[in-house]
Amino acid sequence: MWGWVFVLPALTYFAVFSFYPIFNAFWLSLHTKNPLSLRPPRFVGLRNYLDLLDSATFWNSWKATGLFTLGTAIPLVVLSLLLATIIVSRLNFQRFFQLAFYAPAVIPSVVAAAVWLLLLDPRGVANQWVNFVLGLSGVDHKWLANPEMVRFSTTVVYLWEKLGFFTIIFIAGLGGIPQSVKEAAHVDGAGGWQLYRYVTLPLLKPTTLLVSVMAMIFCMRTFATQYLFTQAGAPRESINVVTLSIYTTGIRDLQLGLANAMSIVLLLVMLVLSLLQFRLSGRGES
């Protein structure tokens, strides 16, 4: 009884701010609705979903989302684990490094993207720095102008923004591994790498699973960087991720039904991929 009382606020919150919008989005996805029109939505069944299957733009946005997620989520998990391991192994300045790496996570995505726009300007620091490192002069790397480079730029910005956040989660996970287990392995003669490979990593598996699922979901929901980059003149096609496509379909094209159908498809794909990750992780454990 008391259990229900305690979870009631959370259930109410999710019901109002998560479940209701999802059901409403699904209901709208079966209708056509212009947000400016005062007429009620018109029921069209699955037509919006069928239109999406026929749309080259929709498939291109999935390609952009897939490439971005693959290119960002995997480095995000690997690098944040690496950083967390390095920071935990430091005897001094642990707090400083945690703070330094976490700082970008508290900057709003829009502000971060705006700062990066200045850096990636042809006359900005990015060109100067890369040219200095590579010993080049006057080369424009076209961070925002070339379709492949703009895809790379969004990945860099996202990595910079989210790396600290996932590093902190890994640090918490590493801190949760009992010292006694490590000591036992040490007594059994395990070296540094063996300890890490056969003790730390397996015990860190729940954290790794959590981080990989979160990283994948975060990457599939990316929006602000791509939106601001296209507003700043970057070519849209290569970074027209699903969320950006949902925005343009709903807000610019005034097709709310279609935009909601895209949102439902995105939700289902994220759900299936998350379940798959849990399933694969469970199989590995058994």
């Binding site: 042809p122 006359r123 060109n127 002069s137 006057g138 080369v139 424009d140 003149g233």
Partner: peptide, 15 residues
């Protein structure tokens, strides 16, 4: 220009 990087544009459109 400084190499490929334009430091002064003669004209540019209003994108």
């Amino acid at each position: 220009r400084d190499g490929e990087i334009i430091t002064r544009r003669g004209f540019d459109f209003r994108y």
